[in-house]
Simulated scan of single mutants.
Amino acid sequence: MGMNTEHWLPVTRQSDRETVGYLEPLHSDYSQVQPRSVLGHPVSAPSDFVTGEDLLLERGISEVAEHWRLTDPQLPNALAILEVSPEGIIVADALETKALVPTERFEVEWPDLIQRLVPWDEPTS
């Protein structure tokens, strides 16, 4: 079971109501919050509410389109995020997904607090 996210506040863009991240309260009055990405990763140092909200709105969710890798199990290829929801984060081989080839899917617990998903670095030859 993951962390209790009951008090995390979703931050949504007004234009399309898309959730761009969450503010995790560090104090019961939300005077200090931990801004978190849609994956649940911390995206900056703790801040006041308005600063955290502005940071998440400015940041957006472009990271969902990026390629990722799992720290465990180690897989040879870049992964694409197919779905992010409180039920979990679904990832699969990015190239096979793009080619519409059936491929194994992996589920990562949401929020990904232990950061099993990390940004993919292209291997250098």
Score class of each variant (00 low, 15 high):
Met1Asp: 11
Met1Glu: 12
Asn4Met: 05
Thr5Cys: 10
Thr5Lys: 06
Glu6Ala: 13
Glu6Leu: 11
Trp8Ser: 07
Leu9His: 09
Pro10Met: 10
Val11His: 05
Arg13Tyr: 00
Gln14Cys: 01
Ser15Trp: 03
Ser15Thr: 10
Ser15Tyr: 02
Asp16Leu: 06
Glu18Asp: 07
Glu18His: 04
Val20Tyr: 04
Gly21Glu: 05
Gly21Gln: 06
Leu23Asp: 10
Glu24Ala: 13
Leu26Gln: 14
Leu26Ala: 05
His27Cys: 07
Ser28Cys: 02
Ser28Tyr: 06
Ser28Phe: 04
Asp29Gly: 04
Asp29Thr: 07
Asp29Ser: 06
Tyr30Met: 14
Tyr30Arg: 14
Tyr30Glu: 12
Tyr30Thr: 03
Gln32Arg: 15
Arg36Lys: 15
Ser37Tyr: 04
Val38Cys: 12
Val38Met: 13
Leu39Phe: 15
Gly40Tyr: 03
Gly40Asn: 08
His41Phe: 06
His41Cys: 08
His41Met: 07
Pro42Glu: 13
Ser44Thr: 13
Ser44Asn: 14
Ser44Phe: 03
Ala45Tyr: 07
Val50Leu: 14
Gly52Trp: 09
Gly52Pro: 07
Glu53Ile: 00
Glu53Asn: 08
Asp54Met: 13
Leu55Trp: 09
Leu56Glu: 09
Leu56Pro: 05
Leu57Met: 08
Glu58Tyr: 01
Glu58Thr: 14
Arg59Thr: 14
Arg59Ile: 01
Arg59Cys: 00
Arg59Gly: 00
Gly60Cys: 06
Gly60Asn: 10
Ser62Ile: 01
Ala65Trp: 03
His67Met: 11
His67Gln: 15
Trp68Leu: 10
Trp68Phe: 10
Arg69Tyr: 01
Arg69Ser: 10
Pro73Gln: 13
Pro73Cys: 07
Pro73Asp: 11
Gln74Tyr: 02
Gln74Met: 04
Asn77Glu: 12
Ala78Arg: 08
Leu79Pro: 02
Ile81Pro: 02
Leu82Thr: 08
Val84Asp: 03
Glu87Phe: 00
Gly88Cys: 04
Ile90Asn: 02
Ile90Pro: 00
Ile90Thr: 14
Val91Tyr: 02
Val91Ala: 02
Ala94Trp: 08
Ala94Gly: 06
Ala94Gln: 11
Leu95Thr: 11
Glu96Val: 00
Thr97Lys: 05
Lys98Val: 01
Pro102Gln: 13
Pro102Met: 10
Thr103Arg: 13
Glu104Asn: 12
Arg105Asp: 00
Arg105Met: 13
Arg105Ser: 08
Glu107Ile: 10
Glu107Val: 13
Glu107Asp: 01
Val108Asp: 05
Asp112Met: 05
Leu113Tyr: 01
Ile114Asp: 15
Ile114Gly: 01
Ile114Asn: 13
Gln115Phe: 00
Gln115Ala: 09
Gln115Asn: 02
Leu117Tyr: 08
Leu117Thr: 09
Leu117Ile: 10
Pro119Arg: 12
Trp120Glu: 07
Asp121Ala: 12
Asp121Leu: 11
Glu122Val: 14
Pro123Ser: 13
Thr124Phe: 01
Thr124His: 07
Thr124Gly: 01
Ser125Glu: 15
Ser125Met: 07
